[in-house]
Nucleic acid binder design. Structure first.
Lengths: 142, 142
DNA sequence: TCAGAAATCAAGAATGATTCTTATTTTTAT
DNA sequence: ATAAAAATAAGAATCATTCTTGATTTCTGA
């Protein structure tokens, strides 16, 4: 492995730790890539992007980093059917719209103040810990 | 292959065709299984269940049947993260709740008359062709 | 009714995203 | 500075799903 000894000191403008997760060189670049592009990339996409900065990084490490970031609540996974998992650094509760004409994936916010019970018939006693809301369609601009 | 010559006549109480899809012996049993149990089974689950009636059926055929039924709008796929795909014969617009204490998956109806724009900030010009709404959590019964 | 065409099926191989394993390197705590 | 713990790279393994192929069944039109 190439020397990583400057790992923790290189980036003075970046926290050493987020939500209790140590920001290693690899995790930092993976997170940076997600924040900079915001295109809901797959692990493969992130891998290719981060390679410019860290040419020796492996795909397995990208998966490890994405998993660690997800487990610590720093990013979220986004699933469309059983396609490759995508990642999103937007932590606000929101859904995702896949525009089938452009292929782009957009964040879709919930109306402010709305609660699940306002639009869903949930069984009584339900506690929801995780929500995934995905839409497909097209956008007509004129 | 075991003779299938009684294929189309065996079930007099079952339509020969649904939404333009010919109901073969295999498709009929797959669909029957989904309708009878309503537990959102995986392809593997359906395979094991249908084997009682059609011992010679293959997993690939179950996948083919589920795909054909899905393509003809007779059933729907249900996805939780990247777990095995599950299948649902309820065609009403609805979401799915995975109860993490029991492992059960429940259909969750939308409030009657509600529209997406009522609770979502969709970009103008959006046409939604497909919705997937999945929740995880627990239910407290007392 | 019968022959050829089209559709369906079974079985197993192939695919592809993700996870796992292991050896190495880096970081942390003493 | 050193031993223990954590993280990484590389490639093998896994597993749901799809694909391929040859056999079987169903359909269509003489």
């Amino acid at each position: 492995m190439v020397s990583n000894s400057d790992n923790s000191n290189e980036q003075e403008d970046f926290p050493q730790e987020i939500n209790g997760l140590r920001m290693t060189r690899q995790r930092r670049e993976v997170y940076r890539s997600l924040m900079a592009k915001r295109v809901h990339p797959t692990a493969q996409d992130v891998f290719l992007d981060v390679k410019d900065k860290l040419p020796q990084i492996s795909l397995a490490t990208v998966y490890n980093c994405l998993e660690a970031l997800t487990q610590h609540g720093i990013i979220r996974q986004v699933h469309f059917d059983r396609e490759s998992c995508r990642y999103c650094p937007n932590l606000h509760e929101h859904g995702h719209f896949h525009d089938q004409s452009t292929g782009k994936i957009l964040d879709v916010a919930f109306k402010p103040g709305i609660r699940l019970e306002d639009f869903l018939d949930l069984p009584p006693g339900t506690t929801v810990s995780n929500i995934e809301f995905t839409l497909r369609g097209t956008i007509v601009t004129h």
